[in-house]
Design a protein around this nucleic acid. Structure first.
Lengths: 138, 138
DNA sequence: TAAACAGATGCAACTTTGTTGCAAAATAAT
DNA sequence: ATTATTTTGCAACAAAGTTGCATCTGTTTA
């Protein structure tokens, strides 16, 4: 775990600091996505609010995490796969929100189907968010 | 236009007030989706911020408008089709965000494709947001 | 390993966004 | 026209997010 975290930070040319390590660990420990609030709570309020914001911003820019649009318009973040990097995300997978337990997760194996757009439209990225019941809540 | 607006309000048993009429007009005039901020600006600051919030909330509850999840996690609203009502939305269409002009719109004719979920998952609602270039920005 | 540098953090202050209670005003009903 | 019901605007507040700056920590180099 420690190694994985340091690896990711080094690979992205980020200095290894307490907040970055702790927040990355949270993402690695956790299957699902995390809201800003989750992170503040789970770090035991060890870090300043501003630091958490800035750390997430850095991770976003570097392509370590990506943000997930939700139907209730809260902001969620989740780890990216290996092939994401600065400037190019490849998170063309489906996001799933469980209505029962509230967990949001990436279904990495479910690829986004092709969508037939009207004439004149060109697509760049497709985001899919599915609501329902996850395998633990059925 | 005036009639259409009054029709919609009456059909939903809402009293006809200045702010409701004005805000509904904005949605009817406009193809795309509106952010809360857009509405405040476009009404010429005629109404209190709180009124705009409450009006949108009422429209949401009545199924007159629906909210759209965006990748930058801002809140957008768009008109529902006729078959939406209190408690039951039928907005299973694709939302499109133009990277060039920033407009967000509903592609009512593009239906959301079926998605094959992993074992144990059951879906309830599927939201699709496509980024790219709209027909006017190509 | 110590000094110097660059970058990250915490604090304070601030802006923006959204919410709540209540009195005044507007709408609908009689 | 009068009454009852909603809706509105105001004020105050809470939550979310941002910015500048001084201080501290991690990294680099000699």
């Amino acid at each position: 775990m420690q190694e994985a975290v340091q690896d990711i930070l080094k690979k992205n040319q980020l200095s290894i600091t307490g907040s970055r390590v702790k927040i990355l660990e949270l993402f690695l420990e956790q299957q699902g996505a995390l809201a800003h609030g989750d992170i503040e709570r789970r770090t035991g309020e060890k870090f300043d609010r501003v630091t958490v914001y800035r750390t997430l911003q850095v991770f976003l820019n570097k392509g370590i995490i990506h943000s997930i649009p939700t139907s209730d318009n809260s902001v969620l973040y989740a780890l990216c796969k290996d092939d994401c990097g600065e400037g190019h995300h490849h998170d063309n997978h489906v996001h799933f929100v469980c209505d029962a337990c509230g967990t949001t997760m990436c279904l990495d194996d479910v690829t986004v189907p092709a969508i037939r757009l009207p004439k004149g439209f060109k697509f760049n990225q497709i985001q899919v968010v599915v609501n329902g019941r996850c395998k633990d809540c059925n």
